[in-house]
């Protein structure tokens, strides 16, 4: 189990991760989804003791990662498949991890087998590996200590479709055996296929989280008003769940009629009211991504439909 608790990481005044909290449960694959630069990697580095959080706390299996006496045996970590010493052979890379963790030498060959690297490939220098081969080698390092938790940053990068399929089956099996998997990706389609739960992050903050099928079903209502914050307050005090989406619209589990009435009673003019469609998550994700392309921002504003000031 992984628990992230009000984690904040600032660089100067810039908050790369801003008050992020979530839990990754055993037996489930948790997808950590967000555009590049959203704070995924920073969160994972803080979780694995490679970065010190400015505030908040991250624990694995109930402990701070730094307090684990031999972390490789509890947590398999792959943060960047390209971060391997190019001058070592793939096999030697594994031998160093095997020795550090104090495992029997046979584990090295078992892991090469498991990730589908041949004996000849193991003898090659990592410098000559494709990104896909490096991912496999990184997975081998992560799995070697037979951990209960896996933390993987963009593990599908560089894998071919067959490789992605292989990775999916591997992580599925790991979770089905009671393991906890936290993997990040900037591709919704990838996460959709493999994750049981999704944590979506944008500009350092969590914007959506929940079980994948619920998030994708997009059940509920989308209601928009000039003041989204007041609308959220009104809906929550009426006993409904309500979240403000990045575009200002509010998603709620109240049905159409009730949502309209709640807004009316709160004195909030409704500018849009409709059932949330199945693409809610994708819309949200695209909206998260768009403002990061700054040169497009002004033209977006002028092209908005009349009267809809966000």
């Amino acid at each position: 189990m992984i628990r992230i608790d009000s984690l904040t990481k600032r660089y100067g005044t810039f908050a790369a991760v801003d008050d992020v909290s979530f839990t990754a449960f055993p037996g489930r694959v948790t997808g950590f989804l967000g555009p590049n630069g959203a704070g995924k990697s920073t969160t994972l580095r803080a979780l694995t003791g490679l970065a010190t959080p400015t505030a908040g706390r991250a624990t694995v299996l109930g402990h701070r990662y730094q307090d684990l006496p031999n972390p490789g045996l509890d947590v398999g970590v792959l943060l960047d498949a390209s971060a391997l010493h190019g001058g070592r052979t793939g096999r030697e890379t594994l031998v160093l991890s095997q020795r550090t963790m104090g495992l029997p030498p046979i584990r090295v060959d078992e892991m090469l087998d498991l990730v589908g690297l041949t004996w000849a490939e193991g003898k090659r220098r990592v410098r000559d590996y494709s990104l896909g081969m490096r991912q496999r080698l990184g997975i081998a390092t992560a799995l070697m200590g037979d951990p209960k938790v896996l933390v993987l940053d963009e593990p599908a990068n560089g894998l071919d479709p067959a490789g992605i399929r292989w990775m999916r089956d591997l992580l599925r099996g790991f979770a089905d055996d009671g393991g906890t998997v936290l993997l990040s990706s900037h591709l919704l389609s990838e996460i959709e296929m493999i994750a049981d739960d999704i944590i979506m992050i944008g500009r350092g903050r969590i914007v959506a989280s929940g079980a994948t099928h619920e998030l994708l079903a997009g059940v509920g209502t989308l209601v928009r008003s000039d003041d989204g914050t007041l609308l959220v307050d009104a809906l929550t005090s009426a006993g409904f769940q309500a979240t403000r989406r990045p575009d200002g619209a509010v998603a709620t589990d109240a049905d159409l009629e009730t949502a309209g009435q709640v807004a009316f009673r709160a004195g909030l003019p409704v500018t849009e009211l409709r059932s949330a469609d199945g693409h809610g998550l994708e819309d949200m994700f695209l909206e998260l991504t768009a403002p990061d392309q700054r040169e497009e921002a002004p033209s977006r504003r002028t092209s908005l439909p009349n009267g809809v000031a966000a």
Binding site: T48, G49, L50, Q66, P71, V77, D80, S82, L84
Partner: peptide, 13 residues
């Protein structure tokens, strides 16, 4: 070579 990422993940001290 950025192998520090693996080194310090295995030995956080």
């Amino acid at each position: 070579q950025r192998s520090a990422l693996t080194t310090f993940a295995l030995v956080p001290r």
